[in-house]
Nucleic acid binder design. Structure first.
Lengths: 206, 206
DNA sequence: CTAATCTTGTGAAATGATTCACAAGCGCGA
DNA sequence: TCGCGCTTGTGAATCATTTCACAAGATTAG
Protein backbone atom coordinates (compact mmCIF):
# COMPACT_ATOMS: atom_id res chain seq x y z
CA UNK A 1 0.00 0.00 0.00
CA UNK A 2 1.04 3.57 -0.65
CA UNK A 3 2.52 5.43 2.27
CA UNK A 4 -0.08 7.16 4.43
CA UNK A 5 0.74 10.44 6.14
CA UNK A 6 0.74 10.49 9.91
CA UNK A 7 -1.68 13.39 9.82
CA UNK A 8 -4.13 11.17 8.00
CA UNK A 9 -3.81 8.36 10.55
CA UNK A 10 -4.27 10.84 13.38
CA UNK A 11 -7.48 12.11 11.80
CA UNK A 12 -8.80 8.60 11.21
CA UNK A 13 -8.41 7.99 14.93
CA UNK A 14 -10.48 11.05 15.63
CA UNK A 15 -13.13 10.12 13.09
CA UNK A 16 -13.47 6.80 14.88
CA UNK A 17 -14.22 8.53 18.16
CA UNK A 18 -16.81 10.76 16.52
CA UNK A 19 -18.42 7.73 14.92
CA UNK A 20 -18.65 5.97 18.29
CA UNK A 21 -20.17 9.05 19.85
CA UNK A 22 -22.57 9.38 16.94
CA UNK A 23 -23.57 5.77 17.29
CA UNK A 24 -24.29 6.26 20.98
CA UNK A 25 -26.76 8.92 19.93
CA UNK A 26 -28.49 6.31 17.81
CA UNK A 27 -27.65 7.86 14.45
CA UNK A 28 -26.95 5.48 11.66
CA UNK A 29 -25.41 7.56 8.90
CA UNK A 30 -23.03 10.49 8.83
CA UNK A 31 -21.68 12.70 6.05
CA UNK A 32 -18.15 13.82 5.44
CA UNK A 33 -19.32 17.32 6.29
CA UNK A 34 -20.53 16.22 9.71
CA UNK A 35 -17.26 14.46 10.48
CA UNK A 36 -15.35 17.49 9.29
CA UNK A 37 -17.27 19.85 11.56
CA UNK A 38 -16.57 17.64 14.59
CA UNK A 39 -12.89 17.40 13.80
CA UNK A 40 -12.28 20.98 12.75
CA UNK A 41 -11.34 20.09 9.19
CA UNK A 42 -13.04 20.12 5.79
CA UNK A 43 -15.30 17.60 4.12
CA UNK A 44 -12.83 17.23 1.25
CA UNK A 45 -10.14 16.32 3.75
CA UNK A 46 -12.32 13.65 5.31
CA UNK A 47 -13.16 12.12 1.95
CA UNK A 48 -9.55 12.23 0.81
CA UNK A 49 -8.40 10.55 4.03
CA UNK A 50 -10.89 7.74 3.57
CA UNK A 51 -10.22 7.42 -0.15
CA UNK A 52 -6.71 6.11 0.55
CA UNK A 53 -8.29 2.96 1.90
CA UNK A 54 -11.20 2.44 -0.47
CA UNK A 55 -14.68 3.89 -0.87
CA UNK A 56 -17.13 3.19 1.87
CA UNK A 57 -19.75 5.89 1.39
CA UNK A 58 -23.02 6.15 -0.45
CA UNK A 59 -23.41 9.13 -2.74
CA UNK A 60 -26.29 11.29 -1.76
CA UNK A 61 -26.44 9.76 1.70
CA UNK A 62 -23.09 9.60 3.49
CA UNK A 63 -21.43 6.81 5.46
CA UNK A 64 -22.94 4.03 7.51
CA UNK A 65 -21.79 4.76 11.05
CA UNK A 66 -21.24 1.16 12.17
CA UNK A 67 -19.70 0.07 8.88
CA UNK A 68 -17.26 2.97 8.73
CA UNK A 69 -16.34 2.58 12.39
CA UNK A 70 -15.64 -1.08 11.82
CA UNK A 71 -13.53 -0.36 8.76
CA UNK A 72 -11.46 2.32 10.53
CA UNK A 73 -10.89 -0.01 13.46
CA UNK A 74 -9.61 -2.53 10.96
CA UNK A 75 -7.35 0.01 9.26
CA UNK A 76 -5.86 1.18 12.54
CA UNK A 77 -5.43 -2.36 13.82
CA UNK A 78 -7.82 -1.80 16.71
CA UNK A 79 -9.80 -4.93 15.89
CA UNK A 80 -7.38 -6.92 17.99
CA UNK A 81 -6.18 -6.42 21.56
CA UNK A 82 -2.76 -4.90 22.21
CA UNK A 83 -0.54 -5.82 25.11
CA UNK A 84 1.26 -2.96 26.78
CA UNK A 85 4.05 -2.91 29.35
CA UNK A 86 5.04 0.17 31.31
CA UNK A 87 8.61 0.73 32.43
CA UNK A 88 8.90 3.23 35.27
CA UNK A 89 6.35 3.46 38.08
CA UNK A 90 6.96 7.03 39.16
CA UNK A 91 4.24 9.66 38.98
CA UNK A 92 3.78 9.41 35.24
CA UNK A 93 4.16 5.65 34.95
CA UNK A 94 1.68 5.12 37.76
CA UNK A 95 -0.82 7.51 36.19
CA UNK A 96 -0.49 5.72 32.85
CA UNK A 97 -0.96 2.31 34.48
CA UNK A 98 -4.22 3.48 35.97
CA UNK A 99 -5.43 5.43 32.95
CA UNK A 100 -8.75 3.95 31.91
CA UNK A 101 -8.53 5.56 28.47
CA UNK A 102 -6.07 2.87 27.37
CA UNK A 103 -8.06 -0.11 28.54
CA UNK A 104 -11.21 1.36 27.01
CA UNK A 105 -9.59 1.40 23.60
CA UNK A 106 -8.19 -2.10 23.62
CA UNK A 107 -4.79 -1.60 25.18
CA UNK A 108 -4.26 -3.98 28.12
CA UNK A 109 -1.49 -3.27 30.60
CA UNK A 110 0.26 -6.58 31.21
CA UNK A 111 3.13 -5.37 33.36
CA UNK A 112 4.62 -2.39 35.22
CA UNK A 113 8.29 -2.30 36.16
CA UNK A 114 10.61 -0.19 38.29
CA UNK A 115 14.05 -0.42 39.88
CA UNK A 116 13.17 1.39 43.10
CA UNK A 117 12.53 -1.16 45.89
CA UNK A 118 10.12 1.32 47.46
CA UNK A 119 7.88 1.02 44.42
CA UNK A 120 8.23 -2.68 43.70
CA UNK A 121 5.24 -4.57 45.04
CA UNK A 122 3.02 -1.54 45.11
CA UNK A 123 -0.41 -2.26 43.60
CA UNK A 124 -1.59 0.05 40.83
CA UNK A 125 -5.18 -0.48 39.93
CA UNK A 126 -5.28 -4.18 39.07
CA UNK A 127 -1.55 -4.67 38.61
CA UNK A 128 1.44 -4.87 40.94
CA UNK A 129 4.75 -3.15 40.18
CA UNK A 130 7.45 -5.71 39.46
CA UNK A 131 11.23 -5.59 39.71
CA UNK A 132 12.77 -4.27 36.52
CA UNK A 133 15.22 -7.17 36.60
CA UNK A 134 12.31 -9.36 35.54
CA UNK A 135 11.68 -7.21 32.46
CA UNK A 136 13.56 -9.21 29.83
CA UNK A 137 12.18 -12.55 30.96
CA UNK A 138 8.66 -11.13 31.15
CA UNK A 139 8.89 -9.71 27.65
CA UNK A 140 9.79 -13.18 26.41
CA UNK A 141 6.92 -14.71 28.38
CA UNK A 142 4.19 -12.12 27.89
CA UNK A 143 5.20 -10.80 24.45
CA UNK A 144 3.90 -7.25 24.83
CA UNK A 145 3.34 -5.38 21.57
CA UNK A 146 4.14 -1.96 22.95
CA UNK A 147 6.29 -0.65 25.80
CA UNK A 148 5.64 2.73 27.41
CA UNK A 149 8.77 4.44 28.69
CA UNK A 150 8.20 6.45 31.86
CA UNK A 151 11.68 6.48 33.37
CA UNK A 152 13.99 9.49 33.93
CA UNK A 153 15.50 11.02 30.81
CA UNK A 154 18.97 9.56 31.37
CA UNK A 155 17.65 6.01 31.60
CA UNK A 156 15.27 6.13 28.65
CA UNK A 157 17.55 5.19 25.77
CA UNK A 158 18.90 2.18 27.64
CA UNK A 159 15.36 0.87 28.13
CA UNK A 160 14.60 1.27 24.43
CA UNK A 161 17.74 -0.67 23.55
CA UNK A 162 16.87 -3.35 26.04
CA UNK A 163 13.24 -3.91 25.07
CA UNK A 164 13.84 -3.76 21.32
CA UNK A 165 16.61 -6.32 21.73
CA UNK A 166 14.07 -8.49 23.54
CA UNK A 167 11.77 -8.26 20.51
CA UNK A 168 9.40 -5.37 21.22
CA UNK A 169 8.40 -3.56 18.03
CA UNK A 170 6.43 -0.60 19.41
CA UNK A 171 7.60 2.03 21.88
CA UNK A 172 5.86 5.10 23.27
CA UNK A 173 8.26 7.39 25.07
CA UNK A 174 7.20 9.87 27.76
CA UNK A 175 10.70 11.02 28.69
CA UNK A 176 11.43 14.54 27.42
CA UNK A 177 14.11 13.57 24.92
CA UNK A 178 14.20 12.10 21.42
CA UNK A 179 15.12 8.43 21.43
CA UNK A 180 16.44 6.21 18.70
CA UNK A 181 15.33 2.70 17.81
CA UNK A 182 16.48 0.21 15.20
CA UNK A 183 14.69 0.02 11.87
CA UNK A 184 11.49 -1.97 12.06
CA UNK A 185 10.58 -0.55 15.44
CA UNK A 186 7.84 2.05 15.68
CA UNK A 187 8.80 4.69 18.21
CA UNK A 188 6.85 7.79 19.16
CA UNK A 189 7.28 10.37 21.88
CA UNK A 190 4.85 12.32 23.98
CA UNK A 191 6.72 15.32 25.29
CA UNK A 192 4.65 17.44 27.61
CA UNK A 193 7.29 20.05 28.27
CA UNK A 194 7.70 20.46 24.53
CA UNK A 195 3.98 21.07 24.12
CA UNK A 196 4.17 23.80 26.76
CA UNK A 197 7.07 25.38 24.91
CA UNK A 198 5.11 25.39 21.68
CA UNK A 199 2.31 27.14 23.57
CA UNK A 200 4.87 29.56 24.93
CA UNK A 201 5.88 30.37 21.38
CA UNK A 202 2.26 30.83 20.32
CA UNK A 203 1.64 33.22 23.22
CA UNK A 204 4.81 35.15 22.48
CA UNK A 205 5.18 35.24 18.71
CA UNK A 206 4.40 38.00 16.32
CA UNK B 1 6.66 38.16 11.03
CA UNK B 2 5.98 35.45 8.49
CA UNK B 3 4.10 32.45 9.74
CA UNK B 4 6.34 29.75 11.18
CA UNK B 5 5.39 26.09 10.84
CA UNK B 6 4.69 24.18 14.02
CA UNK B 7 7.25 21.59 12.99
CA UNK B 8 9.87 24.33 12.99
CA UNK B 9 8.92 25.50 16.49
CA UNK B 10 9.00 21.92 17.76
CA UNK B 11 12.50 21.47 16.39
CA UNK B 12 13.70 24.76 17.87
CA UNK B 13 12.61 23.46 21.25
CA UNK B 14 14.70 20.36 20.72
CA UNK B 15 17.70 22.31 19.53
CA UNK B 16 17.52 24.27 22.75
CA UNK B 17 17.74 21.11 24.82
CA UNK B 18 20.71 19.90 22.82
CA UNK B 19 22.41 23.23 23.27
CA UNK B 20 21.92 23.08 27.02
CA UNK B 21 23.32 19.57 27.11
CA UNK B 22 26.22 20.63 24.93
CA UNK B 23 26.95 23.53 27.21
CA UNK B 24 26.99 21.22 30.23
CA UNK B 25 29.74 19.34 28.47
CA UNK B 26 31.69 22.58 28.31
CA UNK B 27 31.58 22.93 24.54
CA UNK B 28 31.31 26.42 23.22
CA UNK B 29 30.38 26.06 19.57
CA UNK B 30 28.23 23.64 17.61
CA UNK B 31 27.55 23.18 13.90
CA UNK B 32 24.24 22.65 12.17
CA UNK B 33 25.44 19.15 11.37
CA UNK B 34 25.93 18.34 15.06
CA UNK B 35 22.49 19.65 15.95
CA UNK B 36 20.99 17.70 13.08
CA UNK B 37 22.58 14.44 14.21
CA UNK B 38 21.21 14.88 17.73
CA UNK B 39 17.72 15.64 16.49
CA UNK B 40 17.53 13.10 13.71
CA UNK B 41 17.21 15.67 10.96
CA UNK B 42 19.50 17.26 8.38
CA UNK B 43 21.91 20.16 8.64
CA UNK B 44 19.99 22.02 5.93
CA UNK B 45 16.84 21.68 7.99
CA UNK B 46 18.54 23.14 11.04
CA UNK B 47 19.91 26.09 9.11
CA UNK B 48 16.56 26.72 7.40
CA UNK B 49 14.76 26.64 10.76
CA UNK B 50 17.14 29.18 12.22
CA UNK B 51 17.14 31.34 9.10
CA UNK B 52 13.50 32.29 9.66
CA UNK B 53 14.63 34.28 12.66
CA UNK B 54 17.89 35.77 11.46
CA UNK B 55 21.43 34.56 11.07
CA UNK B 56 23.33 33.70 14.20
CA UNK B 57 26.11 31.48 12.96
CA UNK B 58 29.67 32.03 11.89
CA UNK B 59 30.64 30.52 8.55
CA UNK B 60 33.41 28.02 8.87
CA UNK B 61 32.84 27.68 12.60
CA UNK B 62 29.21 27.06 13.52
CA UNK B 63 27.08 28.59 16.26
CA UNK B 64 28.04 29.92 19.67
CA UNK B 65 26.27 27.59 22.08
CA UNK B 66 25.33 30.17 24.72
CA UNK B 67 24.37 32.81 22.16
CA UNK B 68 22.17 30.49 20.14
CA UNK B 69 20.56 29.05 23.28
CA UNK B 70 19.79 32.55 24.47
CA UNK B 71 18.31 33.52 21.12
CA UNK B 72 16.12 30.42 20.91
CA UNK B 73 14.88 31.01 24.45
CA UNK B 74 13.96 34.50 23.34
CA UNK B 75 12.19 33.25 20.20
CA UNK B 76 10.18 30.67 22.12
CA UNK B 77 9.33 33.12 24.88
CA UNK B 78 11.17 31.10 27.51
CA UNK B 79 13.09 34.12 28.73
CA UNK B 80 10.24 34.92 31.05
CA UNK B 81 8.44 32.73 33.60
CA UNK B 82 5.05 31.25 32.74
CA UNK B 83 2.29 30.72 35.26
CA UNK B 84 0.35 27.50 34.91
CA UNK B 85 -2.86 26.29 36.55
CA UNK B 86 -4.02 22.70 36.49
CA UNK B 87 -7.71 21.83 36.49
CA UNK B 88 -8.40 18.26 37.57
CA UNK B 89 -6.40 16.55 40.34
CA UNK B 90 -7.01 12.93 39.36
CA UNK B 91 -4.19 10.63 38.39
CA UNK B 92 -3.05 12.68 35.45
CA UNK B 93 -3.57 16.10 37.00
CA UNK B 94 -1.66 15.04 40.10
CA UNK B 95 1.19 13.62 38.05
CA UNK B 96 1.39 16.87 36.05
CA UNK B 97 1.38 18.97 39.21
CA UNK B 98 4.37 17.06 40.51
CA UNK B 99 6.21 16.82 37.21
CA UNK B 100 9.58 18.46 37.68
CA UNK B 101 10.08 18.80 33.92
CA UNK B 102 7.74 21.79 33.89
CA UNK B 103 9.32 23.69 36.73
CA UNK B 104 12.77 23.05 35.28
CA UNK B 105 11.83 24.78 32.08
CA UNK B 106 10.29 27.88 33.58
CA UNK B 107 6.66 26.83 34.01
CA UNK B 108 5.48 27.44 37.58
CA UNK B 109 2.34 25.72 38.82
CA UNK B 110 0.33 28.36 40.66
CA UNK B 111 -2.83 26.37 41.35
CA UNK B 112 -4.46 22.94 41.14
CA UNK B 113 -8.26 22.59 41.20
CA UNK B 114 -10.81 19.80 41.52
CA UNK B 115 -14.50 19.37 42.34
CA UNK B 116 -14.13 16.16 44.34
CA UNK B 117 -14.13 16.95 48.09
CA UNK B 118 -11.94 13.89 48.65
CA UNK B 119 -9.20 15.55 46.63
CA UNK B 120 -9.59 19.13 47.78
CA UNK B 121 -7.02 19.97 50.44
CA UNK B 122 -4.67 17.21 49.39
CA UNK B 123 -1.07 18.41 49.12
CA UNK B 124 0.72 17.73 45.83
CA UNK B 125 4.37 18.47 46.05
CA UNK B 126 4.42 22.10 47.14
CA UNK B 127 0.84 22.94 46.31
CA UNK B 128 -2.55 22.08 47.82
CA UNK B 129 -5.56 21.13 45.69
CA UNK B 130 -8.21 23.84 45.86
CA UNK B 131 -11.95 23.79 45.29
CA UNK B 132 -12.82 24.32 41.65
CA UNK B 133 -15.38 26.93 42.70
CA UNK B 134 -12.42 29.20 43.44
CA UNK B 135 -11.14 28.84 39.89
CA UNK B 136 -12.60 31.98 38.31
CA UNK B 137 -11.63 34.23 41.18
CA UNK B 138 -8.14 32.74 41.31
CA UNK B 139 -7.64 33.28 37.59
CA UNK B 140 -8.47 36.93 38.09
CA UNK B 141 -6.11 37.14 41.06
CA UNK B 142 -3.19 35.01 39.88
CA UNK B 143 -3.51 35.63 36.11
CA UNK B 144 -2.10 32.29 34.91
CA UNK B 145 -0.85 32.28 31.33
CA UNK B 146 -1.71 28.67 30.64
CA UNK B 147 -4.27 26.22 31.99
CA UNK B 148 -3.76 22.46 31.80
CA UNK B 149 -6.97 20.49 31.43
CA UNK B 150 -6.91 17.14 33.22
CA UNK B 151 -10.60 16.54 33.84
CA UNK B 152 -12.82 13.78 32.38
CA UNK B 153 -13.63 14.08 28.69
CA UNK B 154 -17.23 15.23 29.24
CA UNK B 155 -16.16 18.13 31.45
CA UNK B 156 -13.26 19.37 29.35
CA UNK B 157 -15.00 21.73 26.94
CA UNK B 158 -16.83 23.48 29.78
CA UNK B 159 -13.53 24.19 31.51
CA UNK B 160 -12.08 25.66 28.33
CA UNK B 161 -15.09 27.92 27.96
CA UNK B 162 -14.84 28.96 31.57
CA UNK B 163 -11.13 29.74 31.70
CA UNK B 164 -11.01 31.51 28.34
CA UNK B 165 -13.93 33.64 29.45
CA UNK B 166 -11.88 34.52 32.53
CA UNK B 167 -9.07 35.71 30.29
CA UNK B 168 -6.72 32.75 29.89
CA UNK B 169 -5.05 32.71 26.47
CA UNK B 170 -3.22 29.37 26.52
CA UNK B 171 -4.69 25.91 27.09
CA UNK B 172 -3.07 22.49 27.06
CA UNK B 173 -5.64 19.72 26.99
CA UNK B 174 -4.99 16.18 28.24
CA UNK B 175 -8.54 14.89 27.79
CA UNK B 176 -8.83 12.54 24.82
CA UNK B 177 -11.04 14.74 22.69
CA UNK B 178 -10.54 17.77 20.45
CA UNK B 179 -11.65 20.98 22.12
CA UNK B 180 -12.57 24.33 20.67
CA UNK B 181 -11.49 27.74 21.85
CA UNK B 182 -12.26 31.28 20.70
CA UNK B 183 -9.89 32.99 18.29
CA UNK B 184 -6.88 34.46 20.02
CA UNK B 185 -6.56 31.51 22.37
CA UNK B 186 -3.77 29.01 21.78
CA UNK B 187 -5.05 25.50 22.43
CA UNK B 188 -3.14 22.26 22.05
CA UNK B 189 -3.94 18.70 22.99
CA UNK B 190 -1.84 15.83 24.26
CA UNK B 191 -3.78 12.70 23.50
CA UNK B 192 -2.07 9.59 24.82
CA UNK B 193 -4.67 7.14 23.57
CA UNK B 194 -4.34 8.67 20.11
CA UNK B 195 -0.60 8.14 20.16
CA UNK B 196 -1.14 4.50 21.00
CA UNK B 197 -3.57 4.20 18.11
CA UNK B 198 -1.03 5.68 15.73
CA UNK B 199 1.45 3.08 16.98
CA UNK B 200 -1.21 0.44 16.46
CA UNK B 201 -1.51 1.54 12.85
CA UNK B 202 2.25 1.49 12.39
CA UNK B 203 2.44 -2.03 13.80
CA UNK B 204 -0.45 -3.19 11.65
CA UNK B 205 -0.10 -1.48 8.31
CA UNK B 206 0.94 -3.17 5.06
C1' DC C 1 -40.42 7.82 -14.50
C1' DT C 2 -38.36 12.33 -13.99
C1' DA C 3 -36.48 16.11 -11.77
C1' DA C 4 -34.39 18.08 -7.97
C1' DT C 5 -31.22 17.49 -4.35
C1' DC C 6 -27.47 15.44 -1.87
C1' DT C 7 -23.04 13.65 -1.18
C1' DT C 8 -19.23 10.82 -2.64
C1' DG C 9 -14.76 9.98 -4.93
C1' DT C 10 -11.01 11.90 -7.29
C1' DG C 11 -7.96 14.16 -10.74
C1' DA C 12 -5.89 18.71 -10.93
C1' DA C 13 -4.35 22.96 -8.77
C1' DA C 14 -2.58 25.29 -5.00
C1' DT C 15 -0.14 25.59 -0.99
C1' DG C 16 3.31 24.15 2.33
C1' DA C 17 7.59 21.82 3.93
C1' DT C 18 11.93 19.72 3.10
C1' DT C 19 16.01 18.91 0.54
C1' DC C 20 19.48 20.34 -2.71
C1' DA C 21 23.29 22.76 -4.13
C1' DC C 22 26.34 26.35 -4.08
C1' DA C 23 28.19 31.13 -3.49
C1' DA C 24 30.16 33.58 0.08
C1' DG C 25 32.24 34.38 4.71
C1' DC C 26 35.42 33.25 8.25
C1' DG C 27 39.33 31.10 10.82
C1' DC C 28 43.65 29.19 10.76
C1' DG C 29 48.21 28.01 9.37
C1' DA C 30 52.08 28.99 6.51
C1' DT D 1 48.90 38.31 3.27
C1' DC D 2 47.27 34.33 0.89
C1' DG D 3 45.11 30.01 0.28
C1' DC D 4 42.75 26.04 2.17
C1' DG D 5 39.11 23.91 4.53
C1' DC D 6 35.01 24.27 6.83
C1' DT D 7 30.30 25.87 7.56
C1' DT D 8 26.67 29.16 6.98
C1' DG D 9 22.62 31.20 4.64
C1' DT D 10 19.47 30.86 0.99
C1' DG D 11 17.22 30.68 -3.67
C1' DA D 12 15.56 26.90 -6.50
C1' DA D 13 13.86 22.31 -6.96
C1' DT D 14 11.56 18.54 -5.12
C1' DC D 15 8.35 16.26 -2.50
C1' DA D 16 4.09 16.12 0.45
C1' DT D 17 -0.34 17.63 1.86
C1' DT D 18 -4.44 20.15 1.44
C1' DT D 19 -7.95 22.34 -1.12
C1' DC D 20 -10.70 22.90 -5.22
C1' DA D 21 -14.07 21.68 -8.37
C1' DC D 22 -16.95 18.71 -10.63
C1' DA D 23 -18.72 14.37 -12.79
C1' DA D 24 -21.28 10.64 -11.37
C1' DG D 25 -24.09 7.75 -8.25
C1' DA D 26 -27.90 7.51 -5.06
C1' DT D 27 -32.13 9.02 -2.65
C1' DT D 28 -36.48 11.21 -2.36
C1' DA D 29 -40.70 13.58 -3.77
C1' DG D 30 -44.13 14.19 -7.02
Amino acid sequence: MKHIAESTVRRLSLYLRFLEEHRRKGLDTISSGDLAALGGTTSAQVRKDLSFFGSFGTRGLGYSVPALAHRIREILGLDRGWRVMIVGAGKIGAALAQYAGFRDRGFAVVGVYDIDPARIGRPLDTIVVKDQRALDADIKALHPDIVLIAVPTEAAQAIVDRVTKAGVRGVLNFAPTPLHAPAGVALRSVDMALELEILSYALTAR
